[in-house]
Simulated scan of single mutants.
Amino acid sequence: MDSETLRKVQLVQLEIAKEISRVCDENGIKYFLTGGTLLGAVRHGGFIPWDDDLDIGMFRQDYEKFLEIAPVSLREQYRIIDWKSDQSYPHPMGKVIKKGTLYKESKRKDQGEQGIWVDVFPYDNIPNLNNDFQARIFKLKILRGLVRAKCNYQTWHSEDGVIWSKYIKNLPFRVVSVFMKKENLIKKYEAISTINNNKECKFVFENGPENYSEWCFKKEIFSNLVERDFENCKFLIPEKYHEYLRAAYGDYMVLPPIEKRENQHLIVEVSFGDE
């Protein structure tokens, strides 16, 4: 994706994020910028120049409330999708998309809606980061792999073509998923994800990224939220953002080498609809 197109995509994503923020503010839902979007807010005052998505986090209770009210609270040009409401959608986090746009990933081969999006990640409790959590991660990866296979999400695609080792690794998932119902897989996945959400826990994990273990944080990081400028707009971020970013990225103020400043989602087709 060329830089001009990417910037237009970012501005649509900013528009979507402002709409999410409005709905959350009007309905008492706590949200916060997360991942590369939080890094961009702190390091760049907006998008990381080469970033091709925008990430928002919510604790599970707020996330479920948002999924419930978004269909009637979002303005008509936006839609919330998640893996329960859209049979083609393969991910455990939701997306708010702008209707009439197209933002097609090479890995998605289904006919589901693929408009320009903002990711909304649920955060779930974990008591500690010991072997029990690692076993839990293993189960989540298996279930997510089966859902992806069910939705024909082809993780073996890359900028260089097919990664045959990944293709072979995914074959058992594609075979087994034929005999399973997506809704049953999701129920099992979410039961495992939320098993500690009614307990006092010191840690949370972001539910959706590829490597769960890399996105675990002390819960106290999110105790207080503050406003931060992002593209000359105000959004909420964790007050202890330094602890978050240091855990996620290490020395986060240092720019990566030029060869690693690249888009992450392998977008093969973009359309902005009626402009």
Score class of each variant (00 low, 15 high):
residue 3 S to K: 14
residue 4 E to P: 00
residue 7 R to S: 14
residue 9 V to I: 15
residue 15 E to I: 00
residue 15 E to D: 15
residue 16 I to K: 01
residue 19 E to V: 02
residue 23 V to M: 07
residue 24 C to A: 13
residue 25 D to V: 00
residue 27 N to R: 04
residue 28 G to F: 02
residue 31 Y to V: 05
residue 32 F to D: 03
residue 34 T to W: 00
residue 37 T to H: 04
residue 41 A to I: 10
residue 43 R to E: 05
residue 46 G to H: 08
residue 50 W to D: 07
residue 66 F to C: 07
residue 81 I to G: 02
residue 82 D to A: 00
residue 84 K to P: 02
residue 86 D to R: 00
residue 91 H to Y: 14
residue 96 V to P: 08
residue 100 G to R: 07
residue 102 L to M: 12
residue 106 S to G: 05
residue 110 D to T: 07
residue 110 D to M: 07
residue 110 D to S: 14
residue 110 D to A: 11
residue 120 V to Q: 04
residue 121 F to G: 04
residue 124 D to H: 12
residue 132 D to A: 10
residue 133 F to A: 11
residue 133 F to R: 05
residue 152 N to P: 02
residue 158 S to W: 09
residue 166 K to E: 11
residue 168 I to P: 00
residue 168 I to L: 15
residue 177 S to V: 06
residue 180 M to A: 05
residue 182 K to L: 10
residue 185 L to K: 02
residue 185 L to P: 02
residue 187 K to Q: 12
residue 190 E to P: 03
residue 191 A to L: 08
residue 192 I to G: 04
residue 193 S to K: 11
residue 194 T to V: 01
residue 197 N to I: 08
residue 203 F to L: 05
residue 206 E to L: 08
residue 208 G to C: 04
residue 209 P to A: 09
residue 214 E to D: 15
residue 217 F to T: 00
residue 220 E to N: 11
residue 226 V to K: 14
residue 228 R to M: 15
residue 231 E to F: 06
residue 233 C to D: 14
residue 237 I to D: 03
residue 239 E to I: 00
residue 240 K to N: 14
residue 247 A to N: 11
residue 247 A to K: 13
residue 257 P to R: 12
residue 263 N to W: 01
residue 265 H to M: 10
residue 266 L to E: 07
residue 272 F to D: 09
residue 275 E to Y: 04
